[in-house]
Write a protein that binds this DNA or RNA. Structure first.
Length: 412
DNA sequence: CGTCCACAGGAATGACGGGCGG
DNA sequence: CCGCCCGTCATTCCTGTGGACG
């Protein structure tokens, strides 16, 4: 069959088949729902903290903690939305600004975003930080508003750029005559508290709200609600959703994970031409997510770490047993010489192996062999088909894989 | 019970690149 | 724009060590 015919068949099948989805976007990460099961308490607390803005008073600064997938971001964006609408109705000068520090990245861009939300334009480059800051603060004062800043994933900012911006923001109110700034920090790292300057910390956490992980029952409530919007009638039954919830709960109570599971299971079912989502689709979705994660992890590894994985795989393919550092190092050296790459030292390799152990791509355990020394017992922790898939993408490694390899195991 | 293997893993130091202040 | 400083990666040198073996 020609390629054209194959494609036509695929497209036609896609067009003919009614989708099982009503609205796929409901299950994606950036969807902001209108209901938040089991978050009433947090929403109410946030509302109480922010309400003063409506009367023109500065709300307390606020710190929000919670692991990934506990609804922090979605809830705060929802609350801000409503707050802004309400403020507009009342004619209260409340301006909000949501910034994701991981995405926005630099201090400069964050101030730029602030200015933009205040309705001012600043050059996207060229100003010094202090100039930008003073422009921002004069714009802000001019606007005579309550400016509510949300810094999401604030731990990323502090880790990479330090607490400079936070320091200036917490003190800016002292110099403003007509405006006020409230800061809302969102972090999924409780340890951030320790690494922050205590003065900043105390000013920032006038109020705190904690988002605890969802349990299986709570996840199920969320999924049921979303599945209703996402899928057509009777595509998925309650038992299947419960399975989804249970799988995600046993992980970390991560709702994002649970929604991924549901969406991917739906895509798998649809591709298969099934008009219901069954348990097997969920199971396969779980495996696919895990596989994609591992493939992504390996692909983004630095060169020599990849070579270590590669060498370890070669050894395990020949001798089905654990390896020790020195043995891997010898294979690794031979692989390097085949590829014309300068090998790193054994000391460094030992360190890299530890890093790979932490990521979970292999298991390493220091073991004593008595008379025969002391080393790390090392075993790969990746399925063979994933290894083959990743390394066949690299031309030179895949030819190495297919060539005669005996010499790689030899050394002096 | 001492020895000795085959490393582990800490400390100091060097090479490099990227951001920042003047 | 340039020099400086800092963080990251890597090397070198080193001391420490669990336990089988003799």
């Amino acid at each position: 069959m020609s390629a054209k015919n194959t494609l036509e068949e695929v497209f036609n099948k896609f067009l003919e088949n009614d989708s099982i989805f009503r609205d796929r976007s409901v299950l994606t990460h950036d969807f902001i729902p209108q209901h938040f099961p089991h978050r009433d308490f947090q929403i109410r607390t946030l509302g109480e903290i922010l309400a003063p803005a409506l009367k023109g008073f500065k709300p307390s600064n606020l710190f929000i903690y919670g692991k990934t997938g506990t609804g922090k971001t979605a809830v705060i964006r929802y609350v801000l939305n409503i707050l802004e609408k309400e403020a507009r109705k009342l004619g209260s000068p409340t301006v909000t600004c949501y910034v994701n520090c991981r995405l926005i990245g630099s201090e400069y861009k964050i101030y730029t975003q602030f200015c933009k939300n205040l309705g001012y334009k600043v050059p996207f480059t060229g100003l010094s930080l202090s100039e930008l800051f003073s422009r921002f603060s004069s714009y802000l004062d001019e606007s005579r508003s309550i400016f509510i800043v949300v810094l999401d994933e604030i731990d990323a900012l502090v880790k990479s750029k330090g607490d400079n911006l936070l320091y200036h923001l917490t003190r800016i109110n002292e110099t403003l005559n007509f405006s006020k700034v409230s800061i809302i920090g969102i972090s999924n790292d409780l340890k951030l508290k320790e690494s922050l300057d205590p003065r900043i910390l105390s000013s920032l956490s006038e109020e705190e709200v904690i988002f605890n992980p969802y349990n299986a029952a709570e996840l199920k409530d969320i999924l049921v609600e979303r599945a209703e919007m996402a899928f057509k009638e009777s595509v998925i039954d309650e038992g299947t959703i419960a399975l989804c919830a249970a799988l995600a709960a046993s992980e970390h109570g991560d709702a994002r994970r649970a929604l991924d599971l549901l969406r991917i299971a739906g895509e798998l079912a649809e591709r298969e031409g099934s008009n219901t989502i069954e348990e097997r689709h969920i199971r396969r979705a779980e495996r696919k997510i895990e596989r994609d994660r591992v493939i992504e992890a390996i692909s983004s590894l630095p060169l020599h770490s990849k070579l270590i994985i590669f060498s370890l795989y070669l050894r395990e393919r020949k001798l089905h047993q654990h390896s020790i550092t020195g043995e891997i190092f010898n294979v690794y050296k031979n692989v390097c010489s085949k590829l014309g790459i300068n090998p790193l030292t054994q000391r460094r390799i030992s360190g890299l192996i530890n890093e790979l152990d932490i990521i979970g791509l292999l298991n390493a355990q220091v073991t004593s062999f008595g008379r025969y020394g002391r080393s790390k017992k090392i075993k790969l922790n990746i399925d063979e088909d994933i290894i083959l898939k990743v390394f066949s993408m690299d031309e030179r490694l895949s030819t190495l894989l297919n060539s005669k390899l005996d010499s790689i195991y030899k050394f002096k």
